[in-house]
Design a binder for these strands. Structure first.
Length: 445
RNA sequence: GGCGCGAUGGCGGAGUGGCGACGCAGCGGAUUGCAAAUCCGUGUACACGAGUUCGAUUCUCGUUCGCGCCUCCA
């Protein structure tokens, strides 16, 4: 078995992955703040680390991997949205949590083992803050609980920022209650009309970083194997998680840190003003194929930037079309081809793995191709479902078949003007005809 | 300014000290009434300049260009 190699952000190099306990490999990925639909950039870490989850399960056994992905369901952005709509935060968070789950399912992402929510971990948060205060790593000030950064000797080793650099490069005003400009919030007070929970420091709500530390502590222990997320989370989010957990526990928090690169759209940063903002929800609703979206996100290596465009999605759709044609009626092989597992074991080299799948694109190796593609969360439908779908838009299967029969009648009579007219009619409906040796088949474009 | 990443053919994207991965698109052919699908064939690609070497796209140094982060952000 090829060992799994992982690029560890902490070490800035690829390392051989050794789990703490092969019977319980623990992976945590930072999940969404549920205040709006997830965009395609949010989907990248989900798809990428879903691939990691699949690989870990393949190597260590399905029941030996715990994968947690949280929902941040208390946050100022959620509060803002709730206030806008005049509803409670739970209405907002539940709505977008539900949408998120559906969207990620459309991308063939497996359900994580655990999906903890911030608001379900208030007791753990309070306990951790108390421990940090007792150990001199945190203090109370004007209803806030602050983490005192200078109290941690090696703060900043993940992002390789020294406290001094952070203070010097800071773009935000320093709140007056901070003992040190680099200190960050663990707990902040809530006004009467804001959501809040009782605490020894008054009614308030948690800062962003605290939840992950507490959820990991509760569900996975003081030290976990892998913690992953977008590279923008390296600082401050993950740096501060390390500070909280390691100062509270006195133990290593995470052995391997993984961070995915950014996604651009048509070569530019995705933004609403540029008109290139794509939510997964809208992409699926407008007819883009979830599996093609997934494949598009896997065409680049996860640490590299990936450029997203609709033309890429269509291109990858055609690639899948080819694989579906080849594997029609073929039973997937029992084992996943080693070349594909090896590529993925090398720091999740998905472009390599995909090209290894292409190398199997031959009738003689169709069963292997199918096993490999399914391992990567692709070819999850039957060939028939893929090409024909549940129901083509604006035309019934019966109508299609009647038109095909009429066309074949015309063809038999050499009335090609009529047969081409019928084919054009179907093309307009998004139906492509394929004249085979015996019969005429059809598929959705 | 600090930290970090990258530059491969029309596009995407592996990889390697010496034989032009792979996919998509394009082009030619087979097949087809015509298409579609399929099959066969088809490309003087490795940012620039030095250095190391018998030999560098691959290693070293430099240059240029592009990108990300530096307390909203996957």
């Amino acid at each position: 078995m090829t060992p799994i190699r992982i690029y560890n952000t902490l070490a800035r190099e690829k390392q051989t992955f050794t789990p703490i306990d092969p019977k319980n490999v623990r992976l945590y990925v930072c999940g969404p703040t549920v205040y709006d639909y997830a965009h395609i950039g949010n989907a990248r870490p989900v798809v990428v680390f879903d691939m990691l989850f699949r690989l870990l399960r393949h190597v260590y056994g399905t029941d030996h991997v715990t994968y947690a992905r949280n929902f941040t369901d208390i946050d100022d952005k959620i509060m803002l949205r709730a206030a806008d709509e005049g509803v409670g935060i739970k209405t907002i968070s539940k709505r977008y949590e539900k949408a998120y789950i559906a969207d990620m399912k459309a991308l063939n992402a497996l359900d994580p083992t655990l999906t903890p929510r911030a608001t379900e971990h208030l007791p753990q948060m309070i306990k951790m803050m108390q421990a940090l205060i007792e150990k001199g790593h945190a203090y109370e000030a004007e209803g806030h609980v602050m983490f005192h950064v200078p109290s941690m000797e090696n703060y900043g080793r993940l992002s390789r920022h020294s406290r001094d650099e952070l203070v010097a490069g800071s773009r935000v005003e320093v709140a007056p209650y901070k003992r040190d400009p680099a200190d960050f919030v663990l707990w902040k007070p809530s006004t009467e009309d804001q959501p809040g929970w009782a605490s020894p420091w008054g009614r308030g709500r948690p800062g962003w970083h605290l939840e992950c530390s507490c959820m990991i502590e509760k569900h996975m222990g003081t030290t976990i194997d892998i913690h992953a997320g977008g590279q923008d989370l390296i600082f401050p989010h993950h740096e501060n998680e390390i500070a909280q957990s390691e100062c509270a526990h006195g133990e290593t928090f995470v052995n391997y840190w993984m961070h995915n690169g950014y996604l651009t759209v048509d070569g530019e940063k995705m933004s609403k003003s540029l008109g290139n903002f794509h939510t997964v929800h809208d992409l699926i609703a407008s007819g883009e194929n979830g599996e093609a979206l997934r494949l598009s996100l896997l065409t680049a290596h996860y640490r590299q930037p990936v450029d997203f465009s609709l033309s890429t999605v269509r291109e990858q759709k055609r690639r899948l079309d080819k694989w579906y044609r080849l594997t029609d009626g073929v039973e997937a092989a029992d084992t996943v081809p080693a070349a594909v597992v090896d590529a993925l074991s090398d720091d999740l080299n998905t472009p390599k793995a995909l090209s290894e799948i292409d190398a199997l694109a031959d009738v003689a190796t169709a069963a292997e191709l199918k096993a490999a593609a399914q391992f990567m969360g692709l070819l999850q439908s039957s060939t028939d479902e893929w090409f024909k779908g549940d129901a083509p838009d604006g035309i019934t299967v019966e109508e299609i078949e009647e038109l095909i029969a009429a066309r074949n009648q015309a063809r038999a009579e050499k009335n090609f003007a009529e047969s081409d007219r019928i084919r054009d009619l179907l093309t307009e409906k998004g139906i492509v005809l394929e004249d085979g040796a015996g019969a005429t088949g059809w598929r959705k474009a």
